[in-house]
Design a protein around this nucleic acid. Structure first.
Length: 358
DNA sequence: AAGTGAAGCAACCGCCGAACC
DNA sequence: GGGTTCGGCGGTTGCTTCACT
C-alpha cells in the first residue's frame, strides 16, 4: 500500500497558480494527443508540473465542457436535494450537473448553500431543522402553553392570551409575522372541505413547518415510478416530524396514501416490520428524472418552492396558485395529527418553525 | 485613501481503492 | 500475494478580491 508522492518539495516542480502560458501548453497538448497518462503528460507537454496538478487544472478549469457563470436557482435546488441524499459526495453530485465540477460544487456549497440553509434554520448536514441553536431552548421557554392549560378552543398563537413571551422585540416581530400568515390562511380558507378538523383548528395552523422543512429531504415519490404526485410528496412528511427516526432521505413509505390516523401511527410504532416490505431503497440513477419531475411538475411542485428562495414568496405562491387547497389540506391534517398527539407537540413544531423563520 | 476582516475560490494535500507488475 | 503506481476524492489551505470603516 501507499505510494510515493508524484511531486514533492525536492522535485523542483512548480506549484501554485497556473499561468496562461502553462494553460496553453496543457490545452494544446491534450487537444493534440488526447488524455493519457497524467504522470507522463507534464514532461511530454513541456510543463514543469506534476501530473496530478495537470489533471486538476484540466478537470476543474480547462476542460472545454465546463460550464461557467453563476449557479442557477435550478442548479442550487438540485444540489441541495442531491446533498440531502448523498451527503458530501461531490463527485456524485457533480455527475448530475453537466458542466459543473465537484470542486466547484463543493466550494459553492461551503460558501453559499451551507450558509443559506443555516439561515433557514436547517442543519446543512442532516437537512433537518437545526437543534443546535440556543434559540430552540429560548423558544421553548417562550411557548409556555401546555396541554393541561390549553383549552381545546384556544389558539396557542394568540399573543394577547395564551402565548407568554419574553420581552424580546425581535421575537415578537417574527411571531407577529407568523400571526399574519395564519390570518391569511384563515381568511383564504376553503370551507368546502370535508375533513373532520374542528373549525377552531384552522386557527392553529402553526405546524406549517411540517410541510416546509421536511420537504428539504422530500424528493417526492423517491421509489422512482412515474406517479409522482403532490400527495405522495407529502405523505411521509408528517412522519418526519412525529418521529424523525422513521424516515430518512433514503426511505419512502409508499403504503401511506393519506395522513395517518393516530391508530395507524401507533401501529406503525409498534410493528414497523409489518411495513418494512413497503420500503424501497433509493435508486440514485433515477434521481435526475425524479428531481426534474418534482421541480417542473405543475401539479404540486409548489411544495418545493420555499426551498428555492424566500419563504414568504413561496408561501404566497402556495396560497395563490391553483393547488393551494391541497396545501391547506395538508396543513390541517397535520394539525389534526398533532392535536391527537397532544398540543405539546405543537409547541415543538412551532419552535422548529420559528427557527426556520430566523 | 488606507487599513482590516470577510468572503470566494483555485489549488494543494493526503488518503483510498483499483489496476498493474 | 504483495508491493507499486495511478487516478480520483474530500478536506483544507492560502491567495485574491470585496466590503466596510
Amino acid at each position: 500500500m501507499g505510494r510515493s508522492p508524484c511531486c514533492d518539495d525536492v522535485s523542483g516542480l512548480k506549484k501554485g497558480p497556473w499561468t496562461p502560458e502553462e494553460d496553453e501548453l496543457l490545452t494544446s497538448y491534450i487537444e493534440k494527443h488526447g488524455l493519457g497518462s497524467w504522470r507522463a503528460l507534464p514532461k511530454a507537454a513541456g510543463l514543469n508540473r506534476c501530473g496530478k496538478s495537470c489533471r486538476l487544472r484540466w478537470t476543474n478549469y480547462l476542460r472545454p465542457d465546463i460550464k461557467r457563470g453563476r449557479f442557477t436557482e435550478e442548479e442550487e435546488d438540485m444540489i441541495i436535494k442531491l446533498h440531502s441524499v448523498l451527503g458530501n459526495k461531490w463527485s456524485r453530485i457533480a455527475a448530475h450537473l453537466p458542466g459543473r465540477t465537484d470542486n466547484e460544487i463543493k466550494n459553492y456549497w461551503n460558501t453559499h448553500l451551507r450558509k443559506k440553509l443555516l439561515q433557514m434554520g436547517i442543519d446543512p448536514v442532516t437537512h433537518k431543522p437545526r437543534t443546535d441553536l440556543n434559540i430552540l431552548a429560548n423558544l421553548s421557554q417562550l411557548f409556555t402553553t401546555t396541554p393541561q392549560n390549553l383549552g381545546p378552543i384556544m389558539n396557542p398563537w394568540d399573543i394577547n392570551n395564551s402565548l407568554r413571551l419574553q420581552p424580546n422585540v425581535a421575537e415578537l416581530a417574527k411571531l407577529q409575522v407568523l400571526q399574519n400568515i395564519f390570518q391569511i390562511l384563515n381568511t383564504s380558507n376553503n370551507n368546502n372541505n370535508n375533513n373532520s378538523l374542528p373549525n377552531n383548528m384552522v386557527q392553529t395552523t402553526m405546524p406549517l413547518n411540517l410541510g416546509m422543512i421536511p420537504n428539504m429531504n422530500a424528493l417526492g415519490n423517491i421509489n422512482g415510478n412515474n406517479s409522482c404526485s403532490t400527495s405522495q410528496g407529502y405523505n411521509h412528511v408528517p412522519y418526519d416530524v412525529l418521529n424523525p427516526s422513521h424516515v430518512t432521505s433514503e426511505k419512502y413509505d409508499s403504503t401511506l396514501e393519506s395522513f395517518p390516523s393516530l391508530d395507524t401511527y401507533n401501529n406503525y410504532n409498534n410493528d414497523k416490520s409489518s411495513l418494512s416490505s413497503s420500503y424501497e431503497t433509493l435508486d440514485e440513477n433515477k434521481l435526475p428524472s425524479l428531481i426534474e419531475s418534482n421541480t417542473n411538475s405543475t401539479n404540486g411542485s409548489s411544495a418545493y418552492t420555499p426551498v428555492n428562495g424566500d419563504f414568504f414568496e413561496g408561501l404566497e405562491k402556495l396560497l395563490d396558485d391553483g393547488n393551494s387547497d391541497l396545501w391547506k389540506e395538508f396543513i390541517k391534517t397535520s394539525v389534526r395529527a398533532l392535536w391527537n398527539l397532544g398540543l405539546s407537540n405543537v409547541s415543538t413544531a412551532a419552535a422548529r418553525f420559528a427557527i426556520a423563520m430566523c
